[in-house]
Structure formats: structure tokens, C-alpha cells
Design a protein around this nucleic acid. Structure first.
Lengths: 348, 348
DNA sequence: GTGAAAGCGCTAACAG
DNA sequence: CTGTTAGCGCTTTCAC
């Protein structure tokens, strides 16, 4: 248990009677070093249990090989899939990951950004908090040419890369599906946030209504924080509506499920009285009865793409200043919660 | 977008006509520096947007203020709660987190441990992979007195701290609950892993049977990987059993839910034909109908405790060599999936 | 109270 | 192909 002395390239150089420069070069497998010397040095390094000192290396290189990730909440099925995807790609490329959660609070998001900055991350991956309305706190990064990439919860902007799905189109299809099932009074449950995801989904909902000549009514918009509990609360509001809606499009499965359970308890039949469509393809959507129709949202893939895109920026494969948008595919999953007329969907 | 030059303590010293030593001391708020000088230096640092260089500092201090976390899988409700708890405590203490997943594979776990070691984490938090059978790959850490703490998925050992719940007792209570509901043929669905969690739960199951003079039958043990899908597969086995069991205790909610859904589809009534108890209090347990009786398992808290305990080790509050076990409380949640005789449980 | 100076381990320019 | 050397930015003795 005694603290062994750390072995350095000096120790290796001493033993082998070569210079530290040679050791340093050999360890990086620099072909300029004689192949035999390289082999000897590798062997000795192994034997002495040498491990390179990242601080010293980073101090010289001023790179950390560390990527920061800021997300609103770690414990959701979607977000943990994203992180898993990020982790996979980054680890494969030798990067490390430091993670921080904003807990849906801009203030904490700002603090996290600062911490990441001080820790000199080589790049940053961000999904914004609920109440974030501008991107000023990321200016420090762009000033130093540190790439920042936003995913899922993004804000339209001219400076950074955004990775997202076409929320408007997905929401439109979800709403049109309800309309095709005969729904006329469709409630939209969403968040009171300025983030693109919610704005776009609302737009998609409105567009679908417009296309089918259904008048948009503000009273049919319920805003909440999208939790399971707020879904239950939404159910109470819905039960008081006259006439009651015959279709509900919620921007989040969890919330939809909370709402469905509460409505079922109140005797509402789903989908016959009220048809449901959610968003995200959360695992619960296949447990609730009837199974929830939803939009499949590639969390794991989004993480992979975000990480890969960052790595490309870092390695210069893509130019720093190229601002773009990466749009991922999504998929509409029709399940029983919304099929009023057709034969019931197969389990999917 | 021009890369601004990084400001160092030399720059501050220059501007203020003091030495770098003074600046260094002042920045750490060392009382030996005149209070006025300290204030001036702080002000200037602020003005110049100084940020301390962690590499240089770490190179001197040989500490990283970084904690490594290795978990089997990131994307489970339980694990993300744990990580959230860890993140909270660690961030509050100024530590960073680097995360890696073993994907339930010892080989990747060994590789991750090595990476963490090379990155000189100050401490390590680990939940073991499915097929890990010994702790040799963590020897490198103990040799250098780097604390390693295991949580949840642990292996009994004399060298490291383990954080877990009393799985045997919890499993015993779960099983006894089924017995008290009149179950005589209780199937136990568990994992074919040597990890304590599964062994202890099996023991608890067996003890409960013994206490109530029910003969243990190996045929009543179904082993699988505990996924939702393997729960469905287990249902097929169960349907073929003659006589069919009248109670099932699964070591994981997800798996239990997969199994329940499949059995329901086959016309089995729950709890009347078969009563169910799960483990983990996963969100799905409150969505499935009937709601799943389960063991509440404090993931977030487990993360907090693990992180705090590591910090205590690091700060010397607790001695390095003290090996111990931290046992967290758990809670049995009786819900409808298991209540054959009593009036149905209130929603909990 | 403050400063000078050594050095943490490594990289890379330069020289041979 | 190999060695010498000057730092990277910071902390910390040791002097004054």
C-alpha cells in the first residue's frame, strides 16, 4: 500500500542510457526513432509501469482531450440514451467526458458553462435548460474558438451547430394522424418554454389544423412542465372542458402517460373517447394500456452524431466557422392509443 | 473570433508590479498576503479575465480533482438517478466527474479502469458489470492509495468500501409478502451473475420459503438478463409450467413488467392468477396495470452517499484503510399487482 | 509581507 | 537518428 514513486520518462531514459527526448518520441511511436530503440523503450515503459503524465502533456499542448456536456437533467430515459451515445463515440476517440446538469435552470447552466470553460474543455455539447432564452454565456467559448454544439433543446442562432429533428414536421404528422382518426377538438399539451422544440411542435400542430380547416383555439393549449405529475394535473383541466376534447397530442410521453392514467381512472375510454399521441418513444409508452402512439426519437444516435460532429470540428475535418444544422430522422409509431377507427395496430 | 492570448499570473504580476509568487498566494486567498494587495490582485484578475491553469496546478499538486465513475449501463432509470446524485455532491465540492460504461462486459470494465488510472482520477466509483467475478483490475488503484468505492453491484471483498442495500432482507420481505397473499408456488426471476445483489436476493427468497416451510425447487428459478424482452421470454416459460406458479418475484421491475404484459396477453389475471413483485421502483412500475408491488431503491441517495464517502476518504476525514460497508435503507411498496386478498392498495 | 528561484513531466525547436 | 535545452504556468521553499 506504500505510495510507489511515479515513473517518468527520465527514469526510462536513465535505465536505457538514452535521452528523454528519445523516450518522449518513442512513446508517441514517432517513426523518426530507430525501430529497435522504440521497441526497447516500449518494453521498459511497460516493465516499469510507466504512465504518461497528462498534466505535463496538456500543459505543453494546451489541450485537455476532454469534452464537456451540459444537459438539463440526467435522469430521463431520453437523456441517458444520448449520454450513452456520446460516451461511446468520445471514448472510442480517446476523449473524456465531463458531465454537468443544469437542473432546468439557466443560472446553473451559466455556472456550468463557466466551470467547463475553466476546466478548458476542448469542446462542449449542450442541451439547453427550460428557461434559457439566449446564448450569451457561450460567447466565452466562441471567442476562443472552442466549438460548442447544441442538441435537441436548441435555440436558433447563427453561430453554433444545432442537432435536432424536424419537430414541426413530426408534430404535424402526429396531429394529422389524430385528425385522420376523426378528432375535431385536439388539445396540445406542451411546455411554456421558448426553446425551439416546443415552438416548432406547436407550429406543426397549428399547421395541421390549418391544413384541415380546423380553427385554432388557444384554449386547447395546455402548458405545463411535462412531468408525469403535470400530466395528471392536465387531466383535471381536460375533464372540466366543455365539450371535452376527442384527441390529445402531448409533447412528451411521460406527461401523456400521467394524463392517460388519470383520465382512465375518471372513466374516459382511450382511444374511443379521447385519442392520444405522445412524443419521444419513452419505454413507458409500450407499457401503458393502450400502448401510446408516439414519435420515435433517436436519442442514442443523437448523442453519437453530436459527439462525432464535435470531433470533426476539433480535428479540423469540418471548419470551425461552418455553422450548420444537422437534422436527424424520426419515425411515427402508430399504436393503439390513437386508433379510433382502423383495426388495432400490431404491437410495435 | 481571434484566439485571445491566455492570461497568466505573470501578466497580472506585470501590471501590478508585484511578483508572481504574491499573485499566486493572493489568488488562493492566503492571509499572509496584505489584504489590500490581495484585493488589488483579485480585481485585476477579474478585469483581465484570468483563469487559472489547471494543468500547471495539477502538475505541481499531482491531484486532478476528478473522480471516475464506471457503471454497467448509463441508460436505465436507476443508474441515471445514481449519476445525478453523484454529480450533485461532486460538483458541490468542486470535483469533476468522468464517466465510462462497461456495457456489462468485464473486458470493457478492465479497459475503463485502466483509462481512469492513466487519467489519474483522485478516486473511483464503480458499479460492476454482470460478468465480473474478481476485483484484480482495481489493484493498481489500491497500490497507489487511490480510493475505490463500489455501489449496488458489488463483490464481497476485504479491501474496498461497498455501498448497498440489504438485498437479502428486502427479497425475503418481498417473498414473504407473496406467501402472506396465499402464494404457494413462487417463481423467482433473476440473473445468472455472481454479483452480490442477485445472490443475496436469491438467498432472501430461499429463506422466506424455508421460514414458511415451502420446499425450495430449483425449477422455480428462471435466470435471464433482466431486460424487458427477457421478461417476455420468461412469460413463455411460465405458461408452460405445470402447475403454473401463483406468484412471481422478479429482481427487476423492467423485466417484471415485460413478463406481466406477456402473461396478461395470454389471459392470465394479475394478481388473481399470478401475483407479482418486482424490484427497483422503476417509473414503469406505476404505469403498468395493475401497479407493480416493488422495493423502492434509493438510487439518487446511493449516488450521493457514494460520492460523499469518496470525498471523505480523499479529505482524510475517514481513513484510507478503513474498509466498510454502507447499508442504505429500502422500502417495500405494496401495490395492486400482488394483493390477492386484502382490499386493493391505495395508489402510492 | 514579499520576491527569487527551482522544478513538477513533458514537448519541440534546434543542433549535431 | 539522437541529444540539449528552453519553456508550458503554477506552487513552494528559502531568503530578505
Amino acid at each position: 500500500m506504500i505510495n510507489e514513486k511515479e515513473v517518468t520518462i527520465y527514469d526510462i531514459a536513465d535505465k536505457l542510457k538514452v535521452s528523454i527526448a528519445t523516450v518522449s518520441r518513442a512513446l508517441k511511436n514517432d517513426p523518426v526513432v530507430n525501430i529497435k530503440t522504440r521497441k526497447k523503450i516500449f518494453a521498459m515503459a511497460e516493465e516499469m509501469n510507466y504512465r504518461s503524465n497528462n498534466f505535463a502533456r496538456n500543459l505543453r499542448n494546451s489541450r485537455t482531450e476532454t469534452i464537456g456536456v451540459i444537459v438539463p437533467k440526467l435522469n430521463s430515459s431520453f437523456m441517458s440514451s444520448v449520454i450513452a451515445g456520446i460516451e461511446k463515440v468520445l471514448n472510442a476517440s480517446g476523449y473524456h467526458l465531463i458531465i454537468s446538469q443544469s437542473s432546468e435552470d439557466v443560472k446553473k447552466e451559466i455556472a456550468s458553462a463557466k466551470t467547463m470553460f475553466n476546466n478548458r474543455v476542448d469542446g462542449l455539447l449542450v442541451s439547453l435548460a427550460y428557461d434559457t432564452t439566449d446564448l450569451k454565456h457561450f460567447d466565452i467559448f466562441s471567442k476562443k474558438n472552442i466549438p460548442v454544439i447544441f442538441f435537441d433543446r436548441v435555440l436558433d442562432n447563427p453561430h453554433y451547430t444545432n442537432i435536432l429533428i424536424d419537430n414541426k414536421k413530426a408534430a404535424k404528422q402526429a396531429t394529422e394522424h389524430l385528425i385522420s382518426q376523426g378528432c375535431k377538438r385536439i388539445v396540445h399539451i406542451t411546455a411554456s418554454s421558448k426553446l425551439n422544440v416546443y415552438e416548432e411542435r406547436l407550429k406543426g400542430y397549428q399547421e395541421a389544423l390549418a391544413t384541415h380547416k380546423i380553427k385554432f383555439d388557444k384554449k386547447n393549449i395546455i402548458t405545463c412542465n411535462l412531468s408525469f405529475e403535470s400530466g395528471e394535473a392536465a387531466a383535471k383541466l381536460i375533464l372540466k372542458m366543455k365539450p371535452m376534447p376527442d384527441g390529445i397530442f402531448a409533447t412528451n410521453d411521460n406527461c401523456a402517460v400521467g394524463c392517460m392514467l388519470a383520465l382512465k381512472q375518471a372513466g374516459i375510454r382511450i382511444p374511443d373517447d379521447i385519442a392520444f399521441v405522445g412524443f419521444n418513444n419513452d419505454p413507458v409508452s409500450k407499457v401503458i394500456e393502450p400502448n401510446l402512439t408516439t414519435i420515435n426519437y433517436p436519442g442514442y444516435e443523437m448523442g453519437e452524431v453530436a459527439a462525432q460532429s464535435l470531433i470533426n470540428h476539433l480535428s479540423g475535418t469540418s471548419t470551425m466557422h461552418a455553422t450548420n444544422k444537422i437534422i436527424l430522422r424520426w419515425e411515427f409509431l402508430a399504436r393503439d392509443s390513437s386508433q379510433k377507427i382502423k383495426s388495432r395496430a400490431k404491437n410495435k
